[in-house]
Write a protein that binds this DNA or RNA. Structure first.
Lengths: 334, 334
DNA sequence: GTGAAAGCGCTAACAT
DNA sequence: ATGTTAGCGCTTTCAC
């Protein structure tokens, strides 16, 4: 069955500790013994049991990642960024999906607990809600963590996000420049703090340009492409004045585009559509998406880097807050 | 610091094993003691150390997943399927990226080893090559595994895949029906066994319909949307006769569509394009992708289910081979 | 240069 | 109903 250092020790006629020394390139070992042992280990197909190593060393070389839905390109790209950084630094990843659809506090809470039980050295979290109990719990855990894509006011911690206000400002300014006056803000349900932040920034920008608060309306919608498509269709039908759709993310924007096309609306003239994220496909979509670009993989990479640095320095909170600057990418939909 | 059962034991004036019993709902424990212990455990914010539990029980309740690139929607959806099934069955996932681009045997090999060291109960692998050494190594490991998306002839094992020949047959038949006679097979580089299988099925179908082997040509390409776009542009420019592109996957098909549009080719009349996979976005792309549908999440779910069943039954090889049937989804590009 | 003892946190098996 | 012993696989400390 599974080979342990004991098996090797027996075969090599030495004690287990000698085997350990040989396999870990320690000093104080006779090169001959060492070679002999290494050879036997290879022959037997031995590899160390990291469970035992970690139990002893209290370092698992593992990062927990908690997010909502990997089939969403935005999360997938973040995860990709995290993965590559983690691998480079010698960490593995335990992936946990916090909810399959919508938001579920208990599930997210349990997910975190499970990950912690695995003795991960750190956790990367994309929170899906702002429940104070969750943040309170986070504050008590003894494992370093970094939040992604959320600026938590409730709690002092490290996080990586992008400037959501700037993003919305860019989008609205562009709409205004193009003469749009009746914007639908197609936003993920349930409304999050980030959603409200973006909304407030939109209103602020519109007001600054002399437009009324009524020039933008919130349209809530599940964050799937299908829901965005259907909701946009409904909205455009009910509201012939709407001339711009500001979507929560690119996937929802793509749904909106499809809806507009099917209703025979000209894009961007009848209806301008602006997405968010600039996922890889945005550029290749037809018409190519105008969108607020976040450097998605960079978010993941940066968060992983901060976390690993905290782990290495044995720090629980480093007060590192990175806010990346978004950028408007003007293409064909607005 | 981190709380252990010892800490609880001390506080409760009992022995550690009593704590263990209390926390694991065992018989043979005084309900009062139990409640007292559970309360203390909660107060202290205790959670078990799964490293220790696993070391003892030799079950880690963890699955390894090895794949290539999560930012690719196809892999992401597979991973999503795996994740949900694993979570439902009480397993967690260690995710390992086998290579960032292209194919790298050593990396894939090391990735596997690392995952095994973590004592996962099983491994799900989407292999990226057919190196016999890798398969030879797989045959020797004492951990159950399931291969996805590959029909390995080199080795007896469990796998979940789709009928690649049928998929290509469907695509070619459709092209023929539409009068296409000069197909470019836009395929991922480096060429894999699956790629050749699909190619052979294409040729066979064409011959059966009285067309010559020359009616299809292989166009190799990195499997990114950008590369597919560029390669398609090049191909269409050099070869005015090409009237159909059969793409390796939907992402590449989207790149091809963009190229065709930019060259002013009418889709599907001048150029028909057929993708593969039917990722969620395929339907919403403009023009909507005609594609060979695989039920992607089902591949992941099925593989995870087979693996977990093997783990539960303590079986290394169950000889379960599931070949899912693909389906042609005719939309607007062909 | 090598080994013996001890312990990481937890839990079966065997007492009491 | 509770405690003792022992051991999962590995490594640190100290002795030889």
């Amino acid at each position: 069955m599974k080979i342990t250092i004991k098996d090797i020790a027996r075969k090599a006629q030495v004690s287990p500790i000698t085997v350990s020394r040989a396999l870990n390139d320690k000093e104080d070992i006779n090169p001959d013994t060492k070679n002999r042992i290494v050879k036997i280990a290879n022959d037997l197909g031995y590899f160390p049991n990291m469970l035992a190593q970690s139990l002893k060393s209290k370092k698992s070389k593992t990062l927990g990642v908690i997010l909502r839905d990997i089939s969403d390109p935005f999360y997938a790209e973040i995860l990709q960024g995290i993965s590559l950084t983690a691998a480079r630094e010698g960490y593995q990843i335990i992936l946990s999906i916090s909810s399959r659809s919508g938001v579920n506090l208990d599930l997210e809470y349990n997910t975190l607990k499970l990950v912690l039980q695995k003795q991960v050295d750190g956790v990367l979290i994309i929170p899906e809600h702002e429940d104070p109990r969750y943040f309170a719990y986070l504050q008590k855990i003894h494992t370093p963590f970094v939040l992604l894509n959320r600026v938590p006011k409730e709690i002092q911690c490290d996080y990586v996000s992008t400037d959501q206000q700037e993003g919305s400002r860019l989008a609205m300014s562009h709409f205004i420049k193009k003469g749009k006056k009746h914007i639908a803000y197609l936003v993920r349900r349930p409304l999050s703090g980030v959603a409200l932040t973006r909304m407030a920034a939109c209103e602020k920008t519109l007001l600054e340009h002399g437009l009324s608060k009524d020039s933008i309306r919130v349209v809530e919608c599940d964050d799937t492409i299908v829901a965005a498509y259907e909701q946009t269709k409904r909205t455009l039908k009910q509201n012939s004045k709407v001339d711009g759709v500001y979507a929560w993310d690119d996937v929802m924007a793509m749904g909106a585009v499809k809806a507009a096309i099917e209703l025979g609306c000209g894009i961007p003239d009848d209806i301008g559509i602006i997405g968010y994220d600039d996922i890889e496909l945005a550029k290749f979509f037809n018409p190519a998406l105008t969108t607020v670009r976040q450097n998605i993989q960079l978010i993941g990479r940066t968060a992983a880097e901060i976390l690993i640095e905290k782990i290495n320095n044995d720090v629980l909170i480093a007060d590192k807050t990175v806010i990346l600057r978004p950028e408007l990418i003007v293409r064909e939909t607005a």
